[in-house]
Nucleic acid binder design. Structure first.
Lengths: 357, 357
DNA sequence: TCCCTGCGGGAAAGGGCTTTCTCTGCGGTA
DNA sequence: TACCGCAGAGAAAGCCCTTTCCCGCAGGGA
């Protein structure tokens, strides 16, 4: 690889001058030398060694991001928001997938710190695991102590800046909707119980049912992986245990899609026999058939906010933003079947949130 | 940030010794000093500066990847394959999204070269743009000249190692299937015409139709963005121009999903009135309703192969691997409607490639 | 007792870049 | 004419590590 001194030598100038030309520094350089340097750069196909640059420069510019899995639409959307702001501000993003492995998360914090990122963003559910949470907080605190900025998305156990989707309110929306549609036998297809996202959404759901005089016994909940296959499998277990279920809440849309697959395989009509409500409103939700009724989270916006917090001026008080959830009514949730319905169907209203395009 | 000399000072040893302990070098260090160093590391929360390390060490380890968009399932799958091999070999991946912008692609090649990646993988369609192709090849050649390894996935215009899905054969499969089902009025929802992927798939499709005595006039092709909305929009234009179409080939699954949305919005039954065939077989294809008949590409495997090529021993002859396409029959392609059907329906056969799970 | 060997440790030389500091030479002012 | 100031270039000091080279010392063999 050609180095800066190669360029300088070829142009017949000092490395200092070459550097100034290449970085268009404020220090003036005569046009003639500038030309010579530029020519040498082109001839040698010179590209500065980024590591040497980062070492020599003092200011850090890249931002580290740790997500569960970028290819999961939930995180893809959040990442889109992060990217948008980062690109606007000329920041590079280093994105790492933890695949929901707490140890890997810890490792990545170290790795990114080692890469001298200016800020760190952790997106995705926290864990009900005190030892891990303590360790993570220690590492984050150490990082912040050296001037690093930290923001978390969707996890409340860290003390720094945080952007939180209102998971609890979202769960509540889903629960209330199904109650109003007259459902009593409601099953839940949940993500891993160690995730705070799971328990938060579940808590809101349970609260809604309780308010309506229903309840949510443990036997109507199945925990599985937070993905399509997990949802399919949990739904199967749920139906095996209680064939009389008239509604299923899936704690994210991927699981909801799995639930729909299982229902289809068992020839249960949606929503005539069984209603389904998802969570997140990822893009594909409107394209499955029937289109998925779900709880929308402003995913892109969450990313935008988190990145803005972290790149903005730091305050000593950690900021905490809660972004609202919203119920999107499409076609998978309908009135409970008559023989099981307990209350009158609600007044008619527009049932579709968005037209097919 | 604590530095190595901070650690060394605190432990009362030289930086050399500290470095040896931290990197568990082969050079022996007495247990006592080792302990002291480790203690100092823990107390100071020391993390080595990755840039300094990379500068000091000679060997490059990270691998750069340029894709159109990781959150696009096509690339998500490829990336999964890349990751798998990279992780096995202890390599870090730097993934960059070009968002199908050739200039950004060029920039990223420079950027990754600057970051001293050991290898570079470009995934995604090439462009019908000679000036760009030449520039890219120059940059890649310059990189290879300094010992870098390069592999491309799905683009044939570069001379190095390449992994190619058989786009042409895939197009042929889709075309033949629809011909055998008796379709004559076949429309195509295509990606941007500047992409080689588009033209390759189109060429195979056209060949199949020609072989069956049909043809594929330009007026039955609509070009649009390679995503869901592009597919929806192109399908609408196609149907407006020719309402008598009995089949639509979408040149990727995202577009196919858009096509299904448009057909649904126009109350055209799939596959009774209009058949649809997609391309890629991304995971969601089996979960839409009706489940999507599509051409499967071994996406994960493509990633695995490319990474293996690039991390394997280099040969002077560039290797070129073509991976086969396969038709996956699900529920969106059926016999042409009777009044339009031109040949007898084919012999009955199993129509579903995979059971609902 | 002396020398050689080998182990454990440190000094120091990079690695490629940025940036401050220094130096030279010129034009302008008193 | 003497001096000051400044523009433009280079020298050199880091940035933080790794790794080679070298040194001192203890133990073993002659």
């Amino acid at each position: 690889m050609a180095t800066l001194s190669d360029v300088a030598r070829r142009a017949g100038v000092s490395p200092a001058t070459a550097s100034r030309v290449i970085n268009s520094s404020s220090k003036p350089v005569t046009d003639e030398l500038r030309e010579r340097v530029l020519a040498a750069v082109a001839e040698l196909q010179y590209v500065p060694n980024a590591h040497a640059q980062l070492l020599a420069r003092s200011h850090r510019s890249a931002v580290g991001v740790i997500v569960h899995d970028v290819s999961d639409p939930y995180f893809a959307e959040i990442t889109r928001g992060l990217q948008r702001v980062a690109t606007d501000r000329g920041r590079l993003l280093m994105i790492c997938n933890s695949y929901r492995d707490p140890d890997r998360e810890l490792e990545y914090v170290e790795l990114l710190r080692g890469h001298q990122v200016a800020a760190l963003i952790l997106a995705g559910s926290g864990y009900h695991d005190d030892a891990f949470t303590r360790q993570l907080n220690e590492k984050l605190a150490a990082y912040e102590a050296t001037g690093g900025r930290v923001a978390v998305i969707g996890r409340h156990e860290h003390s720094g800046d945080a952007v939180m989707p209102d998971n609890r309110a979202g769960g509540h929306l889903a629960g209330r909707e199904l109650c109003e549609l007259g459902h009593r036998a409601i099953g839940v297809v949940a993500g891993p119980r160690i995730l705070t996202t799971t328990t938060d959404r579940l808590a809101g759901l349970r609260q809604a049912l309780t308010e309506q005089g229903r309840e949510l016994p443990e036997r109507r909940i199945r925990y599985a992986e937070f993905d399509r296959d997990g949802g399919a499998e949990a739904t199967a277990r749920l139906l095996d245990a209680d064939p009389g279920l008239t509604a299923i809440v899936a704690l994210n849309d991927s699981m909801a899609i799995g639930a729909l697959a299982t229902l289809r395989a068992r020839s249960l009509a949606v929503p005539r026999q069984v209603s389904v409500v998802g969570f997140d409103d990822m893009p594909i939700a409107r394209d499955v058939t029937p289109a998925l009724t779900t709880v929308r989270l402003p995913l892109v916006d969450m990313g935008v906010r988190a990145m803005s917090l972290v790149l903005g001026t730091g305050t000593s008080v950690p900021r905490f933003e809660v972004l609202p959830a919203e119920l999107i009514r499409r076609d998978t949730a309908g009135p409970a079947p008559a023989q099981r319905r307990e209350t009158a169907a609600p007044a008619p209203r527009a049932r579709r949130a968005d037209a097919a395009s």
